[in-house]
Design a binder for these strands. Structure first.
Lengths: 178, 178
DNA sequence: CCAAAGAAAGTGAAGGGTCATTCATGTTAT
DNA sequence: ATAACATGAATGACCCTTCACTTTCTTTGG
């Protein structure tokens, strides 16, 4: 007989994941202690273990919701809007920094790699659906290269700071048009 | 009056950096202890501090030599060779995994970010020099997008495992030809 | 040429600290 | 009353770094 409802439990989990994402973005996974997450979330040391069995489970939960939006069309304007969205997330929330942490951790952990690879597959699938059928090149290959540029852009936002998306948008269009 | 010559000191430093890179590639920066590096290098606990003042200095030394080779020309063949080189380094030495660690750390440390940003600038500069003057687009913008694809390819080698470079090579050529 | 002094280099045990996790105890809702 | 939930001090492990001590090499005075 639970003292609280499912919605309460869900809200508490979200509270923890939000706090963890904030700290992971600032200090990385290894640089963030459970005490940091607990403080950011306003919980007590022990209570967090009612919602996550370990720090690693929190890392996984943060990585699982790492997906970005997709472009809605493959015009120069839509693609630019998409990159501006990525850029704004990096500026306002440090999202590119978090993504860099996630890739590094995924490179070391098969479990995380599977999660990230799945998200990438989903992104390529969504993109391939937008590519016109009369495209001169194979849609799958175009999607592959498209995602690659987006990753490169995000990683460089993390390392080099804010970057004009124009060259990247142009390149994306060049790829699409073969 | 030093007991050993400069070449000895250099060799010892290289020994440490090589050992550190091996372990960093397997376990990441935070997951590698000084004891791990010492063991890998076949040194004793205290002696490593004669060559590096701290673990962080070793991390910096590893990041400083993270540069990759450049393509020698911008033909499809040369570009493919370059990507195959990146691919082979990832397969044989786990280099893509190490690069992912470096980007994540650079995203958190301004000092490392400066080092990596410098390497990226150098790469773009070298690339821009290869772009034919009659190219329809601006060479700097092309180099920017080119590097972005290479980063995206490397990061995905780290996360998704071995990948055929063909789609990426095609995209690189599409960018170059406007 | 030899030996002993002296300095550089090496060693590994221990200090000082942090961290993830647990658990005995307290609190609150049913 | 009782069981779910919360709390935070305690625990045990790990880790970076230091340092007193040993070994090894160079120098130098006899």
């Amino acid at each position: 007989m639970p003292k609280v409802g499912q919605s309460y439990l869900d809200a508490r989990r979200k509270q923890i994941v939000d706090a963890a994402r904030t700290r992971f973005t600032s200090d990385g996974f290894a640089g963030t202690s459970m005490a940091d997450i607990v403080t950011e979330a306003g919980l007590s040391t022990g209570s967090i273990y009612r919602y996550f069995a370990s720090k690693n489970e929190i890392v996984v939960a943060v990585c699982e919701q790492g997906t970005e939006a997709f472009p809605t069309a493959l015009t120069l304007e839509a693609v630019t809007d998409f990159l501006e969205h990525v850029r704004a997330l990096a500026r306002d929330k440090g999202h590119a920094r978090l993504v860099a942490q996630i890739y590094a951790e995924a490179a070391l952990s098969p479990a995380l790699a599977a999660i990230v690879a799945q998200q990438l597959t989903e992104m390529r699938r969504a993109l391939a659906g937008l590519i016109p059928v009369d495209s001169p090149s194979d849609a799958g290959q175009i999607a592959e290269a498209f995602v690659s540029i987006c990753i490169g852009y995000s990683q460089q936002l993390a390392v080099r700071g804010d970057l004009d998306p124009a060259p990247f948008a142009k390149a994306l269009m060049a790829i699409i048009q073969g």
